[in-house]
C-alpha cells in the first residue's frame, strides 16, 4: 500500500507491506538506521522517534497508520559536524557507552524537555497541581522508558541536566 510520511522535513512516498512498522520503514526502506531496534516490542525505547512532535516507540507503530504524519529521527536532530546541544552534551558527559540505545535516549530527552516545559507531571512529581521542576529524580523517571544495558544512566541524566540548565538560562535571559 502507498504511504506518505514526512521524515526530517522531507516528504517520502513509500509502497509498503501493511505489516511494516515505522521503525522498519526507516531502517529497511529509507536506510535511516540511526533509529535502533532493541526489542521490537515497546520494551526498551531504542526506537524512540518523534511523531508530530511527540515521542513514541516506532516499533509499535504501523507505517500505514501514520500516513501523512511528521516524523523526526536522530538524523534530523544534528550531524557529527553540527551536533544538537543534547548530542554535544552526551559526548561531553559520556552519556553512552556502546551507543546503541543512544539515539533513542537523545530523541526521548528532547521530547522530555519539551514535555516538562509544557508542564507535564510524572509518576514521581510530588504534586500534580504545579508545573514540575526537573530534578534528577524527575529526569530519571521520565527517561525510564529508555533502557541502557551499559548502564550510562547517571551520565545520561547529567547530560540532559546540562541542556536543561542551558535552556533555562536562555529563557531567563530572554525574560
Amino acid at each position: 500500500m502507498d504511504v506518505t510520511i514526512t521524515v526530517n522535513g522531507t516528504e517520502r512516498k513509500l509502497e509498503l507491506d501493511p505489516r511494516v512498522t515505522l521503525l522498519d520503514a526507516l531502517r529497511h526502506e529509507l536506510g535511516l538506521t540511526g533509529t535502533k531496534k532493541g526489542c521490537d516490542h515497546g520494551q526498551c525505547g531504542a526506537c524512540t522517534i518523534l511523531v508530530n512532535g511527540r515521542r513514541i516507540n516506532s516499533c509499535l507503530a504501523l507505517a500505514a497508520s501514520h500516513d501523512g504524519d511528521e516524523i523526526t529521527t536522530i538524523e534530523g536532530l544534528g550531524t557529527p559536524e553540527n551536533m544538537h546541544p543534547l548530542q554535544t552534551a552526551f559526548v561531553t558527559h559520556d552519556g553512552y557507552q556502546c551507543g546503541y540505545c543512544t539515539p533513542g535516549q537523545i530523541m526521548s530527552a528532547e521530547a522530555m524537555l519539551r514535555e516538562a516545559a509544557e508542564g507535564w507531571p510524572s509518576y514521581v512529581s510530588k504534586t500534580l497541581d504545579a508545573d514540575p521542576t526537573l530534578t534528577d529524580e524527575e529526569i530519571a523517571e521520565r527517561m525510564s522508558g529508555n533502557l541502557c544495558r551499559c548502564s550510562a544512566y547517571p551520565r545520561i541524566r547529567e547530560a540532559i541536566a546540562a541542556v536543561r540548565d542551558a535552556r533555562n538560562a536562555t529563557k531567563e535571559a530572554a525574560e
Binding site: 529497511h28 535502533k36 536522530i74 536532530l77 552526551f90 559520556d94 553512552y96 551507543g99 543512544t102
Partner: peptide
C-alpha cells in the same frame, strides 16, 4: 578525553552490524 567515536554514535551515523543494505 571525549570518545572520538562519540559524534557518530550520538547522531546515529555509527553503523552497527545489521545496518547495511
Amino acid at each position: 578525553m571525549d570518545r572520538p567515536d562519540g559524534p557518530l554514535k550520538v547522531t546515529g551515523t555509527a553503523r552497527y552490524a545489521a545496518e547495511a543494505l
